[in-house]
Design a protein around this nucleic acid. Structure first.
Lengths: 191, 191
DNA sequence: TATAATATAATACAAATGTAGAATATTCTA
DNA sequence: TAGAATATTCTACATTTGTATTATATTATA
């Protein structure tokens, strides 16, 4: 977080105002003037920290995800790819279920939000940190594989979320378990 | 396309102007005034058809992808999921290689572009049309599976494209073939 | 706590935006 | 081809945006 309390307060006011406005109207219909009026700060203060409204949204999403992913702790020192993946999946399911602000963002900003894309990157990052790196050509395969898997995972979440989360959570879990086993048995058997 | 020639010409001028401007500067730095000046149309004409510059980009991307995917024709009457997938992959590789406008958009607009996301949707659509639909619970699995697979595929393309397409195309093909076989052998064995 | 640093507020201004009405030009179609 | 339909242009105006300057208030820290 910012060290200067004034910056912290200003940003907080602007972020909170944006969340409120997003609940009321479409993101593209929100003007900077409207935002600073609601946040009760000078317009210059906005330009002091951001250049567009999307920057505020970006910051909100990054803060939320940093906060969430920093809470992920693995019991064992090192997990294999399969175990780590399933841990992260469970975490994300919990995150969506528990965090109102995240639910609001996903519901209201839809495709304008980069939240899921950012979550993909975080997931990839964590997985990459945990596992033993293969060498040579397999290193490249791993990179493609992680991108494939992480992005595919988020797409399933997206489908699940935007279809109203009607599929029971156990089924989603089962789906991911099946996916992960397929890879475990076929790709990175030894990870 | 639009039936009225005036609309067609106006939109074409605006689209072409946007492409030129995107080659010069960042999308977020392009103003509507600038755009209509370059397109040599009245500003009111812009507002007649669009509300934001992003709408123009959207339209360009949709037209490009409609054009490309409408060219995909399968020799056989029906393919299995595996064959259809590999055909589409090959098509996309060709599309990126051949189409200058698509390369420009991918290169210059980066994450601001929804082009790859739209391609995912098109791919999903086609695959869904071709294959025999399973029933009951498996229908749901198929939906999740297609989302997973299509999105994962595009993520690999993205990685490949933005890392400068250094990985030889044969390796990318190999990767996808391996992925598709894994699924063929484990998931939809009978499709 | 005094001081230096700096974020915010107040104000101003040129440019861009969004919207509207009326005149003109183009195109559709009967 | 004539007339109806409508897209574009022209003009105007209130609002928003982006930028800048200065004064004031708050905060960090020595």
């Amino acid at each position: 977080m910012e060290k200067d309390r004034r910056i912290r307060k200003s940003k907080e006011a602007i972020q909170d105002a944006l969340i409120k406005l997003i609940e009321e109207k479409d993101l593209s219909a929100i003007s900077i003037k409207e935002l600073v009026d609601k946040a009760d700060v000078n317009r210059k203060t906005f330009y002091n920290h951001y250049t567009q409204i999307e920057d505020v949204l970006d910051e909100i999403e990054n803060d939320l995800l940093d906060d969430f992913f920093s809470q992920i702790r693995f019991e064992k020192d090192s997990l294999n790819l399969n175990e780590a993946f399933l841990e992260i999946i469970d975490g994300i399911i919990r995150m969506i279920g528990d965090n109102n602000r995240i639910r609001t963002l996903l519901t209201r900003t839809g495709s304008q939000s980069k939240l899921l894309k950012k979550a993909v990157d975080k997931e990839k990052e964590i997985l990459y940190r945990i596992i033993d790196k293969p060498e040579g050509r397999d290193a490249l395969w791993l990179e493609y594989f992680l991108n494939f898997f992480a992005s595919g995972t988020m797409a399933v979440f997206e489908t699940w979320f935007y279809s109203g989360q009607e599929t029971p959570m156990e089924d989603i879990s089962f789906f991911f378990r099946r996916m992960s086993h397929i890879y475990k048995d076929n790709w990175y058997t030894d990870l």
